[in-house]
Design a binder for these strands. Structure first.
Length: 568
RNA sequence: CGGGUAGUAGCGCAGCUUGGCAGCGCGCCUGCUUUGGGAGCAGGAGGUCGCGGGUUCAAAUCCCGCCUACCCGACCA
């Protein structure tokens, strides 16, 4: 490609709305442009990178025995009503459009479990057709409340997602492992340092699932990591080992004292009430009224300096729940006497400690101090109910664990029968006769997000530094002073034609601009190899070869350059 | 959805306090000179000052409403 003809405009300054490096560089280098908040155009260079990423995904998934198809982006809303997810998402969060004339309301697909289940269900009637894993690369739509960081969090995005169909759970787990391994290979080729972590399943559902996390300063997620035993989990799913003693000795008073604490519902409010430097948030019990996954009203107790981690399927009390359970007084909830009111009490392992606690008195504007576990209240079950922080003991080996900021690059789920049980057509004739339904897995990877992640992890202060697998072109050929020295122009033209003829992807900077501009643009665009032809070198019959990533420089003859690039 | 900031040429910004000719740098066009790390000179094009209303002889500037974007938080398959 001749740069004089390429639709690209590089910017010396980044637009004011770009905060993070990947966003600034992708815009400055002319790869992408913003159309609306969270909606981006891929200009020719950006599209080439996107295609390169997609190629890696296709090659690895095809090699793993998956088959590509393309599902619609528009889904009849009835499909989402059948699965129950229309209600789960809520009308606000599910982007829809109404098609007039023929009528009908369509969902702008945010994910494709429903569609793929009915699609494959219609084609598969026998266990003999299984196992089957299909995948697609498709535009998806998300109702992001706050798009940010360029391609990292957008409302329209390109995703690759695979779906596996198996005869039973064991077979599904085998398919899961195969795609899981393929995903690891994809990230390796994209030069991303990925850590698969145990994760919470959210609105997709299913039991076992993993997130593929890339540690990054721009990450919006955290995972916990144990360097001794390798335990890794999303902070939303992570648990911690027992034996943590948090906070100080607390209020020493052995007897329970009631305090009038008007207008102080929060932890910090109560701490300030006592005006005692010995008392901190860690001496209070945070009591969270929840409904557990079996619908039982349950009080979760965690140390006051911690954030609650709700187990999957649990939810916080809503206003109606407080009305139904008057023993729980919003803002002044405590564990004392709750079992007698039919409330389960569960506690984080951090609640085990010497001394006493300050708790809500279950009476408006009152708190209790000197409350002791097992004496003043009972705990029905102990567990890990607080969000893990750096230094907590690993739940497997007890060593301190670390919190790592990261970007979620992919998410894989063992769905099981969640969709096949509710969507029509998911039954097939089993080997032993009789009917069975699919055991499914799904595997999503944010392709457009990967551009941002790769750019974020592979750049320097001068510009992008693309890994070879995803660079839009392999070679950046710059002819210096070509407009002035015909020999240079001729030699550069000839080298360009030879390389292109040999199948090397070359971006040829044939513009009549000063050398400084060409060098700066080459650095900014970030192609792996830069070739420079100038009058000085040409007089000696050499061109300059330079690696963008290592800065290594060589002088090669024209012949050697061609040989070098073609043989690799 | 709550809090904050901003919207003036393609990009980055000044002007607004104290109302009075629409500005600067980069980029773009033409010409000449220049040419190994974002060249110089000369000339030129490009504007609904986010939108609507109000105050005023006069509004980019003051007032009211709205929209858009970004940041923090909430939310996030």
């Amino acid at each position: 490609m001749r740069m004089s003809r390429l639709l690209v405009r590089t910017l010396r300054e980044a637009p004011a709305d770009a905060e993070v490096a990947s966003h600034q560089l992708l815009v400055r280098a002319g790869y992408i442009r913003r159309l609306a908040s969270g909606v981006y155009t891929f200009l020719p260079l950006g599209l080439r990178v996107l295609h390169r990423v997609e190629r890696v995904i296709r090659e690895e998934l095809d090699a793993a025995g998956c088959q590509e198809l393309l599902l619609p982006a528009l889904h009849p809303i009835e499909l989402w009503e059948q699965s129950g997810r229309a209600a789960l998402f809520g009308s606000d969060a599910l982007p829809t459009m109404t098609v007039d004339g023929r009528g009908g309301t369509f969902v702008l697909g945010p994910t494709h479990e429903e569609v793929v289940t009915v699609t494959v269900g219609a084609e598969v009637d026998s266990y003999r057709q299984l196992p089957l894993t299909v995948y697609q690369i498709q535009v998806k739509f998300r109702d992001e409340a706050r798009p940010r960081f360029g391609l990292l969090r957008t409302r329209e995005l390109i995703m690759a997602d695979a779906y596996s169909f198996d005869v039973d759970k064991e077979a599904m787990q085998e398919s899961y492992r195969i795609v899981f391994d393929a995903y690891l290979r994809i990230f390796e080729r994209l030069a991303l340092d990925v850590t698969p972590v145990e994760a919470a399943s959210g609105a997709i559902g299913g039991d076992v699932n993993h997130e593929f996390m890339v540690p990054s300063v721009v990450g919006e997620d955290h995972f916990v990591s144990c360097c001794s035993c390798g335990y890794a989990a999303n902070v939303e799913a992570a648990t911690r080992g027992e034996g943590t003693a948090v906070g100080g000795d607390g209020a020493p008073a052995p007897e329970v004292v009631q305090h009038h604490t008007p207008g102080r519902p929060g932890i910090a409010d109560v701490v300030s009430f006592f005006e005692d430097p010995e008392i901190s948030a860690g001496d209070l019990l945070k009591s969270m009224a929840t409904v557990d996954d079996q619908g039982r009203p349950t009080l979760i107790l965690i140390p006051g300096d911690r954030e609650v981690r709700l187990p999957g399927g649990w939810r916080l009390f809503e206003d109606g729940d407080f009305v139904a359970h008057p023993s729980l007084v919003k803002g002044y909830i405590g564990p004392v006497g709750q079992q007698e009111q039919g409330i389960r009490v569960v506690a984080d392992v951090g609640v085990v400690r010497p001394g006493s606690w300050i708790v809500g008195a279950n009476r408006s504007d009152h708190h209790l101090s000197g409350v002791v576990v097992d004496r003043d209240f009972r705990v029905d079950a102990w567990g890990s109910f607080a969000e893990v922080v750096t230094g907590d003991p690993c739940p497997r080996c007890g060593e301190p664990i670390e919190l790592v900021r990261s970007v979620e690059a992919a998410h894989t789920f063992q769905l099981g029968y969640k969709y096949s049980e509710v969507m029509p057509g998911s039954n097939f004739v089993a080997e032993e006769g009789g009917e069975a339904v699919f055991s499914m897995g799904c595997y999503g990877m944010g392709v457009s997000r990967l551009l941002a992640v790769v750019a974020e992890e592979h750049h320097d202060d001068r510009g992008l530094v693309w890994p070879g697998e995803v660079a839009p072109f392999r070679v950046h050929l710059a002819a210096l002073g070509a407009g002035r020295v015909p020999e240079v122009a001729a030699a550069a033209d000839q080298l360009y034609e030879r390389l292109v003829g040999a199948g090397v992807e070359v971006l040829y900077d044939d513009r009549d601009v000063s050398p400084g501009v060409k060098f700066a643009d080459a650095d900014l665009l970030g192609l792996p190899i830069r070739l420079v032809i100038g009058a000085k070198g040409l007089a000696r019959g050499v061109v300059e070869w330079r690696s963008r990533s290592t800065g290594e420089e060589r002088e090669l003859t024209l012949e050697a350059v061609v040989e070098d690039l073609v043989s690799e």
